[in-house]
Design a protein around this nucleic acid. Structure first.
Length: 562
RNA sequence: GCGCUCGUAGCUCAAUGGAUAGAGCACUUGACUACGGAUCAAGCGGUUAGAGGUUCGACUCCUCUCGAGCGCGCCA
């Protein structure tokens, strides 16, 4: 629709929202500079070309050469009815569609899940849903920590406790207790420590009895993780498990391939690769250690094996690693080595999607009063309890069974939305009252806007599907603004995926909600005469659909009443 | 010491190099026997940590300084 600007001139075709009009078009400024013309005159010529006929109600040149456009109501209404008929709400299918492997959550076997896991799990899950809806082929990989030296002591501790007792503790969610007890014994009891070291050797050599015990630990832990995933409502299942153990067999080959490529260097008995540009404390080149002096492999090796596997077996075009920001140098080095070895290139890309720390009110890393990290399940349960208490107070007429379901949706939704609504790379302050507030950029506020629309339809006693194809008139400014916002959904998804930033989608949905409530205050729906009533119902219907859909992409439910 | 990330209203957060830096909370005021007030409208509040630079235009890009967090060789 703005071809006049592009016109083969490589002008910036960007159309963006503006305070001064529905949208502003800035392309005339850079274009004028390139061709040495006066930007205002150029913009004027663009307008006179007449491409906005039937689209704009007003279009004029402003400031240094912006083109301000206000859309004609009839044009917006036409676009809206196309979107209303579209299952995808106007969002096009990705072209090309990529195979995206996304690595997130990755808890450790026989260790508790904490707030850090909450971030990777929630952000990863939202990105999975958004990428999938956008039309990509998404493969989830939960790279659990199920291998390594601690497993010697964990297995011995399992034997000492007896399998049944151990199973009780682990499935009850006392993973830290189990781990700490094993660790204490390891430090205090030389005989236990010796058994543990021997057990590691057995595990690594593939001793079948040991593997059975190891598998038992893994099964108990993943069973527990699944209860957490279930509470959280995330997509991960056992099918997505791709633990470190699974890459052990690939590591000798990874080493061999690095050796064959000539990248591998012997350094003080260890086998390493020196990616350029990394230095250590003393200013010397910093190596990525592939094989330790002891002959053992490192997590760098495992991550490289992982890259190879994802590229060659899964045919990934894009690999996302939703891992805390503290790992960023590690990933830079791993990816650099993978590029040097030719496993990654311009068409096969690996991206670290980092996130910051969760802070307490004191702006320090969130801890419990005793200084321990807070267990994820406790956070989840408290979120639901707090939501339930709010329901009891504010919606006493909701029946008990429904309240249980809705409290889940609101509590979990609030928790997730708080994670997702600020820029993931920054640290964020955890605050129950703020996240559960019904005012501001929160989950409950968005859910409330949706529930109000559902309520409207219950009272209207009309079938939502029947108003869907009705024609829409945009008389009031609030209707116009809401329409414009609704048409912005595809762009919101696009910008969200540009940098894998779910908070962009959150911001869009929040703005949609505020636009809706402004409309709702100013424009009576049920009391309006026809055809305005039906037109407004159609606007409401589309708003609710976009809200519910967008929340769905964030992994958040949109209850019909609350 | 080196590297990465961050620094925006009192607080919590936004702002694909575009016009007068926007929201929510808090504070002040207005609307209501309410299509769910769990709301809406408005006011107050800024040297975007500081200094240079690039640009028609900088919170955004570059350089330096200050401050905070994290990482920096055989754990994962």
């Amino acid at each position: 629709m703005f071809d006049a600007l592009a016109d083969g001139n490589e002008a910036d075709p960007t159309v963006r929202p503006s305070d001064h009009a529905d949208v502003q078009i800035n392309g005339a400024l850079p274009l004028a500079k390139r061709v040495g013309a006066n930007p205002r005159e150029l913009a004027q010529r663009v307008l006179e070309a007449g491409a906005l006929e039937g689209v704009a109600s007003t279009a004029d040149v402003a400031g240094p050469g912006f083109i301000n456009v206000n859309f004609a109501g009839s044009f917006l209404a036409e676009q809206l009815s196309d979107v209303a008929d579209d299952e995808r709400l106007g969002v096009p299918d990705a072209d090309p569609s990529k195979t995206v492997v996304i690595d997130y959550s990755h808890p450790n076997v026989a260790k508790e899940m904490h707030v850090g896991h909450l971030r990777t799990t929630i952000i990863g899950d939202a990105l999975t849903r958004i990428l999938g809806f956008a039309g990509h082929d998404v493969i989830r990989e939960n790279h659990i920590g199920d291998w390594g030296r601690p497993f010697g002591m964990l297995i011995e501790h399992l034997l000492d406790l007896g399998e049944d007792a151990a199973a009780d503790g682990l499935t009850q969610g006392d993973l830290d207790g189990f781990y700490r007890a094993a660790n204490r014994k390891f430090d205090a009891d030389p005989e236990f420590a010796e058994r543990s070291r021997h057990r590691v050797v057995l595990l690594q050599s593939g001793d079948s009895d040991t593997l059975v015990l190891w598998q038992r630990l893994v099964d108990l832990s993943t069973q527990y993780f699944n209860t957490v995933y279930d509470k959280l409502g995330v997509l991960l299942t056992d099918d997505d498990l791709a633990g470190e153990s699974q890459y052990q067999a690939l590591m000798p080959d990874t080493l061999a391939r690095l050796e064959a490529s000539g990248l591998l260097v012997d350094d003080d008995g260890a086998r390493v690769v020196f990616p350029p540009g990394f230095t250590n404390r003393d200013g010397d080149p910093l190596p990525l250690i592939i094989q330790a002096r002891t002959g053992g492999f490192n997590y760098a090796t495992s991550d490289l094996a992982c890259v190879i596997d994802r590229v060659e077996r899964l045919h990934a075009d894009l690999m996302l690693y939703v891992v805390d920001a503290g790992q960023s140098q590690h990933f830079q080095m791993v990816f650099e080595v993978a590029r040097m070895a030719g496993w990654l290139d311009d068409t096969t890309e690996a991206v670290h999607v980092p996130f910051g720390v969760v802070l307490g009110e004191d702006r320090k890393r969130l801890r419990s009063r005793s200084g321990e990290p807070i267990r994820l399940v406790e956070l989840i349960d408290e979120a639901v309890e707090r939501a339930d208490a709010a329901m009891a107070e504010k919606s006493p007429d909701l029946d008990a069974a429904e309240r249980v379901v809705v409290a889940q949706a609101i509590g979990i939704g609030a928790l997730k939305y708080a994670e997702l609504s600020s820029d993931r790379v920054k640290d964020y302050v955890f605050d129950w009252d703020r996240m559960l507030s019904f005012d501001g950029n929160t989950g409950p506020y968005l859910q409330y806007a949706h529930a109000r629309i559902c309520s409207l339809f219950r009272r209207a006693e009309v079938d939502r599907a029947s108003v869907r194809s009705s024609s829409i008139e945009l008389g009031e400014p609030e209707e116009h603004a809401l329409a414009l916002r609704l048409l912005g959904y595809p762009t919101a998804i696009d910008t969200t995926l540009e940098n894998y930033s779910p908070h962009k989608l959150c911001t869009y949905l929040y703005e949609l909600s505020t636009d809706f409530t402004s409309f709702y205050e100013r424009c009576p729906v049920l009391k309006a005469d026809e055809p305005t009533r039906t037109s407004r119902l159609a606007l409401c219907d589309l708003t609710a659909r976009v809200l519910a859909h967008g929340l769905g992409l964030l992994g958040i439910e949109a209850p019909e009443r609350m």
